[in-house]
Amino acid sequence: MTYLYAFLFVGLLCLIAQIIIDNTTLSFGHVTSMYVVLGTILGFFDLYDKIIELAGAGASLPITSFGNLLYHAGLDGYLQNGILGIFQNLLTTTSAGITATIIFAFIMTLIFKPKD
């Protein structure tokens, strides 16, 4: 069942994104930013954790999970150390994604030449 929910959830997100891009002047940049904000809102209402329960790792793949992780890391930080904790903790769980992106992007940039 997890596979079916993963298919439906990620598919639905991509479908909505494609409809927005085809029918408006918004670019992929707009849509991904909107999706991150959507992820934080879903995290706020505790919906995203329920989706992860259903769809498993499939739900961690879209950029919306980035927003969810940011929100929960911020909340955990607050619970540990008050307002200061939000500042200390907000980017902790998203670190893997950002760090991997920076490391691999930098290595690839040094090795390869831009293709046009």
Binding site: L13, C14, A17, V31, T32, T109
Partner: peptide, 25 residues
């Protein structure tokens, strides 16, 4: 693949790499 490859985390990685490559010069 349309947006199916942009909305996952791959789109994020792609945007960083392509911007870095474009301005490498």
């Amino acid at each position: 693949f349309k947006s199916s490859i942009i909305i996952p985390i791959t789109g994020f990685a792609h945007s960083v790499t392509s911007a870095a490559l474009d301005y490498k010069q």
